[in-house]
Simulated scan of single mutants.
Amino acid sequence: MKKYILFDNDGVLVHTEPLYFKANIITLKEHFNLSLEFDEYMKIMSEGTTVWQKAIDRGFLEKDIIYAREKRNEYYQEFLRSENILIHGVKDILKELSKNYKMGIVTTSRRVDFEIIHKNLGLVDFMDFVLCEEDYEFAKPHPQPYLKGLEILGANKNEAIVVEDSKRGLTSAYKAGIECVIVKNEFTITQDFSQATYFIDSLKELQAILN
């Protein structure tokens, strides 16, 4: 019986992934005159590597990449503040789930971005904890983020379930030995989810799986 739910953030609770992709496209073009194709970006996200490798391979200096990364982050934050990122119905679903389960968010987002995203959404109110990029040494697809989530909850892997939308997050959960639900996301739909235990079209279907 499941007692704990560990949620990814981007693409599961909020619609932010296209905005991050757009920020990377703009920055690579402006600073290095490099393109970033969708399939290429999906591969980078799945493997947990970096969009800056293209600039590194072409001999750009570290200081230039550091500056570009800062500009990318600024663009992303501008988009987060101006775009509608809330996925319809998520707040009500979390409210109901919180009555029967302890829940946490395990994300690769930076804390500063996470706080911008959730400033006025009220989703964190239903969570027992949040883990961001700064809270662990190794990011997804390494299992450490979800293992740390289990540790915080005092849970064993069989008592928990992970909700993800990306191959990188699925790999992290799989390596941690935790069953994973993949929620459909048009942005990541082409990725390999063969290691997932369940597939759902929306979070509305999560309760049926848990039952």
Rank of each mutant, 00 (worst) to 15 (best):
Y174I: 01
T188D: 05
K2S: 00
C180L: 01
N33W: 01
F193S: 01
P143H: 06
Y198M: 08
R168A: 13
F129K: 08
A55P: 06
A155N: 04
H88P: 03
G89A: 11
V51P: 05
V51K: 00
K2T: 00
F187C: 05
Q195Y: 13
Y67L: 13
E151D: 15
D165N: 15
D8Y: 11
D10E: 04
L36Y: 09
L61P: 00
L206T: 03
L28P: 07
L6Q: 02
K148C: 04
D125L: 10
K102F: 09
R111L: 13
V106D: 11
I56E: 02
V163I: 15
V183A: 08
V130F: 01
V181C: 13
S35W: 02
G11D: 01
H15I: 00
M45K: 13
V181D: 07
F138I: 02
Q53I: 13
N120V: 02
V12P: 04
I65T: 02
G122R: 10
H118I: 06
K119T: 03
Y146H: 11
H118D: 01
D165I: 01
H118Y: 06
L210I: 15
T49I: 15
E151P: 03
D8L: 10
E96V: 15
E186S: 12
R110G: 04
F32M: 04
F114Q: 04
A68Q: 03
E164I: 12
P18Q: 04
I209W: 08
F199W: 09
S194Y: 05
E40S: 12
M103L: 11
E30F: 09
K43E: 14
T27K: 08
V130P: 08
R110F: 14
E159N: 03
L80I: 10
D57A: 10
R72D: 00
D135Y: 09
G104I: 03
F7D: 06
S166R: 05
